[in-house]
């Protein structure tokens, strides 16, 4: 069972649909007891960085996510979910994220159409998450702020170019983040979610 973290930020229907299509069961929850029974957590999200971080804090999910990450649980942050793995964002200068990465999210420079909306090429490092996905495949993006290429290069899993080069996917241990929407990226997006689901299945989670 894969838990989709329910914190009221944006649409989770498509993420659940995609996992269901691939044969993985999901549960939408923010209850620690339910989350504990799931080997993997997906942090979706659409909306603003600051208010999302605040909701996560208030629901006690910050501490919970830290604890699960330290235990090596599988995490997948999607879009705003990836952004919440960072420290700060130009979107809400006062807000603080989970700070798995010390970098600050930036707004795309002037002269570019924002949101960065549509299909763009992703160049990934070799990793089980991108298994079977040809280099340079297109994924669907819809975002106005971007994660810079990381200070800690080891954690940069994939990059994309839109006026600037930015982080399309990051990885620290078993915590993965993707800026694009795999649940809306056609065949390649489904393949990425399948890869994630298989990693989780193979990991032998014994519960918390």
């Amino acid at each position: 069972m894969i838990a989709i973290i329910d914190y009221g930020m944006g649409n989770v229907t498509s993420v659940r649909n995609a996992f269901a299509y691939l044969g993985f069961k999901t549960v939408l929850t923010h209850e620690p007891e339910v989350l504990n029974s799931c080997p993997a957590l997906v942090l979706p999200g659409v909306g603003a960085f600051g208010s999302a971080a605040e909701v996560l804090q208030r629901k006690g999910l910050f501490d919970y996510l830290h604890a699960r990450r330290e235990k090596g649980s599988f995490l997948l942050g999607i879009c705003l979910g990836l952004q919440l793995f960072f420290d700060r964002s130009e979107e809400d200068p006062a807000g603080r994220g989970l700070t798995y990465f010390p970098d600050k999210l930036k707004r795309f420079p002037p002269g570019l159409k924002v949101p960065h909306m549509g299909w763009n090429r992703v160049l990934a490092e070799p990793d089980p998450l991108f298994e079977g996905i040809p280099q340079g495949s297109h994924f669907y993006f819809a975002h106005s702020f971007y994660a810079p290429l990381l200070t800690a290069e080891d954690y940069l899993l994939a990059r994309c170019r839109y006026g600037v080069d930015f982080a399309a996917a990051v990885k620290q241990g078993n915590a993965y983040g993707v800026q694009f929407h795999p649940e809306k990226s056609g065949e390649m997006g489904l393949r990425l979610l399948l890869n994630f689901g298989r990693m989780v299945e193979n990991a032998d989670y014994t519960g918390n």
Binding site: T13, S14, N17, Y21, Y140, A142, H181, G186, G189
Partner: peptide, 8 residues
């Protein structure tokens, strides 16, 4: 549609 088609 959202159950069957995984593009926007």
């Amino acid at each position: 549609t959202a159950r069957e088609v995984f593009i926007p």
